[in-house]
Each structure stands twice: as structure tokens, then as C-alpha cells.
Write a protein that binds this DNA or RNA. Structure first.
Ligand SMILES: [Mn+2]
Ligand SMILES: [Mn+2]
Ligand SMILES: [Mn+2]
Ligand SMILES: [Mn+2]
Lengths: 226, 226
DNA sequence: TTAAAATGTTAGACGTATCTAACAAATTAA
DNA sequence: TTAATTTGTTAGATACGTCTAACATTTTAA
């Protein structure tokens, strides 16, 4: 006797990682293509292809051959739930466990898959129902509601504007180590002194009136307001 | 070109769970048999058989057909490292996150597989390098050294003796819920009033001079000293 | 000391997640 | 608008962890 189990709502660790990436990468244009996912997830395109077929069966994505991949409402809910757990974990690691913002992402990648509402509810409670993670990213609430901000990348701010750093668009250690070196952090206000046309680098003046230069690569990963 | 990677020291989540069980179940007699492992891990005997072949190749166990399974020093080190993480996680969940001792085991089963020394070192530090988990089990130190105690099961204590509950030999929720109901906890002193010859049940007198009866099944899972 | 029962192993299968090789479609450039 | 390039799919293979069915060994009971 064989029972085909639907396994509604639940996803394997792998499926969770895929839907999270599908959601994030499709944010900008409403969809994501196979090769982008393959690159992000460090797998080959055929692997993405077969996983998308599976997620389409689960109704987490809409997927037609040779067409872009779109997240469904159901898939979005899944993704936001994992993103919520990831960001709560990161903030917990920084605020409660006193780890550095540059070292928490990799641990949160593992903690986000812990299955226990009690665990996450307590973290949420201990942190006082926080709205942002250590990198300035908004934390979706338990219903999947997430703040939709009007932040811009630092390299898109106007010259002579004073802007506040509110988030980073990358939480990999190498990048955050670099920001730590430059002394840049969330909440800091900086004046955009000059944007080089040639290479896209940006010259800033920080709180301490010290001038510092950052490359385009770095500037586009720093999100600012005002 | 094919590279056979040795993957020294590292184990998959599944392998970690097997070696932990091999270690625990072989504690009493120095070895464990296939059917015991199958029962504990909720898999069928052939599954255990093939996993033991794999662990034998990794030199974590010694395994000859139809003979009991023995842990090697290398396997013991692996097992103790996972047990350490499990128990540190449990204590963290109780002492820092204020969860109940009856609900932390299942979460710790997941947390013990988180790969991050930073994470566990911080937990250890925050807890003040603790020696026991919430169920009274000794926590191996970073070198795998573990306290070897002379605790006995409550049903093996003598009548009229006053003993201190120092640990429980089972940390499943159903059992701990039962202890919570009876008001029994670690550190509590009880007087053994009577041990029934017929069914092995034990009558105790607690701190508040109240008499209470526990079954053999419960008594053999409570560890006492003195 | 044999027969029955319990325990363990082998063979072959399956689902998941991955890959490479070969082919197909869509996009871009000539 | 054809050809080249990029992108995506299919087919078939592999490792892992699991299963069932069949067979083998060891232990226990007659
Ligand atoms: Mn992160
Ligand atoms: Mn983050
Ligand atoms: Mn436990
Ligand atoms: Mn415990």
C-alpha cells in the first residue's frame, strides 16, 4: 500500500532555501530566471529546473517552460516566514548573544530552519518585537507583513546631500568586514561630497568630518534615506 | 575527473544522530546491537546495518557482521561533541530563553547540528561554563571530558533513605510533564517510604511532607544521590 | 541437540537533490 | 533575417538515506 502524502505547508530545508531566493530575486521585476537562481544557490540550471517543477506542483511558484518564475501568494507567505526567522535570529545573535553583525548571517542561515514556534516567539518577545535586523532589513511580522521602504542605494543619492545609512543590501562577512574597516554603520549620517563619473566611486564626509572614499561596488550596497 | 573526498572529522546530520545513539546505547555494556539502534532511531534494521558499515569506514565504530557495535575513540569524541552542543543548547533555552525543561529537548535536537563554534562558545560563556544540563545530565567540556557520576535510579535506593534528585534519565516531554504534575524536580530531596515488591512502585515523602506514589516506570528514570 | 524464534545481512528498489552531456528555444548580433 | 550566443530543458547518472523481501546466522527453548 502506498500513500502519497501531500505535506501541505511544510517544506524541506532545500525547498525553504529555494523559495527564499525565488522571492528575493523576483522582488525587483516580479520574476526571476533559472540562471539567476542557479548562480545564487550555487547549483546548475537543471537542478533549478527540476526544483521549480516541484515548487510549481506545491503551488509556491508559477512556472512555464522558458518563462520567468513567479512566486504565488502561498510561496510568498512561506518565503516571508523564513525571512522572518532569519532576521529575528540575526538580531538575537547580535543583541542578546553579542556577536558581530558581520558574523551572524551564516549562523542565521542554519537557525532559520529550526522548526519551533516557541523558539521564535520567545526570540521575538525577548527582542521586543523588533522591526529591523542588524543590517537594517525589515523583519516581517508573524502574518508576513513587511515594511515597504523608499530607501535608495548610496550611489543614487545626490551630491551635497546628507543622508542617513539605514541598511545594507548584502550581509556577507567580507562586505561587512569592509564597512567595519571604513567605520560605516547603520544610523550614521554622511554627506555625499562627490560622485566620480569615471568609476562610480563616491567620496563621503563622515560625522567626524573625515573624508573617505568608497567604490561603486560598495556604494550600491549601502542603503540610505533622506 | 573524480575526487574522492575524505571529509575528515565532519559528519552529516544523519551520521551525527547515529553516532550519538551508538555512544549512548553502548554506555552500559560497551556495545550496542543493530535492533536497539533501529528502535531508538525509528528506522529498520537494514538501514542501521548500512549506516554502521559507513561509520566503520570512517573509523567511528568497530563493526563485524553479527557482532555488537563498539564506538572508537574517534567516534566517542564526535558523539561527545554533539552531546555537548545538545546539552548546552538545552540549558541556554531554559536559563536564558526561559523555556520549560519539558519543551527544550526537541529544539536542542535541531540546534545541536548548527555548525558554528562561535555560537556554542558564546552560549557556554553566557551560561558560565556550566557542568549540568536542565535534566541534570553532565555537559562534556570542549575536550570531551565528562563527569562520571555514581548516581543510581530512584527505584534502586534503599527504603527509608533520604535521597536527592540529581537528574532524569529521559528528557521526553511526556515524561517531564508527568514529573511537573507530581511536583518533582532536580535538587529536590525525598524520603523513600516504601518500595512495593509487587509492581515496583515507590512511595515517597517530599519536602512538604506529602506522600506521593510513582510507578516503577517513572522511578527508574529518576536519578538520585546519597 | 535439534527445532523454533529472534536477530542480522544482502539485494534491489525508491525519493531527494544533485550532476553532466546532449539537445532545444529564445535572444542578440551580424 | 539569418547566424551566433545565451539560456533553458531533457535524459540519464550518482550519492544519501531509507524501505521491503528474501535469506543467513545466532540464540533460545523444547
Ligand atoms: Mn542574513
Ligand atoms: Mn540581515
Ligand atoms: Mn535532550
Ligand atoms: Mn537533557
Amino acid at each position: 500500500m502506498l500513500f502519497l502524502i501531500e505535506n501541505e505547508g511544510m517544506g524541506s530545508l532545500t525547498e525553504e532555501n529555494y523559495i527564499k531566493s525565488v522571492y528575493s530575486l523576483s522582488q525587483a521585476t516580479g520574476e526571476v530566471i533559472v540562471s539567476e537562481l542557479a548562480k545564487k544557490l550555487q547549483v546548475k540550471p537543471p537542478t533549478v529546473n527540476s526544483m521549480m517543477k516541484k515548487l510549481a506542483l506545491k503551488k509556491w511558484v508559477v512556472y512555464a517552460p522558458y518563462k520567468g518564475i513567479k512566486v504565488t501568494d502561498k510561496g510568498k507567505k512561506e518565503a516571508l516566514s523564513i525571512i522572518r526567522r532569519h532576521r529575528l535570529a540575526e538580531l538575537f545573535l547580535v543583541n542578546v548573544m553579542k556577536l558581530g553583525w558581520e558574523e551572524v548571517h551564516d549562523i542565521a542561515e542554519q537557525l532559520e530552519h529550526v522548526e519551533s514556534n516557541r523558539f521564535y516567539d520567545r526570540i521575538d518577545e525577548m527582542l521586543g518585537y523588533p522591526k529591523f535586523d542588524p543590517h537594517g532589513e525589515p523583519i516581517p511580522d508573524a502574518n508576513g507583513k513587511i515594511l515597504n521602504d523608499k530607501r535608495i542605494a548610496l550611489n543614487q543619492a545626490k551630491e551635497n546631500a546628507t543622508v542617513k545609512i539605514v541598511a545594507v543590501a548584502d550581509d556577507k562577512k567580507s562586505f561587512l568586514d569592509h564597512l567595519n574597516d571604513k567605520g560605516l554603520k547603520i544610523g550614521e549620517k554622511v554627506l555625499i561630497k562627490r560622485k566620480e563619473a569615471y568609476d562610480g566611486s563616491v567620496v563621503l564626509i563622515n560625522k567626524a568630518k573625515v573624508e573617505l572614499m568608497i567604490t561603486h561596488q560598495v556604494a550600491e550596497r549601502i542603503l540610505v534615506e533622506e
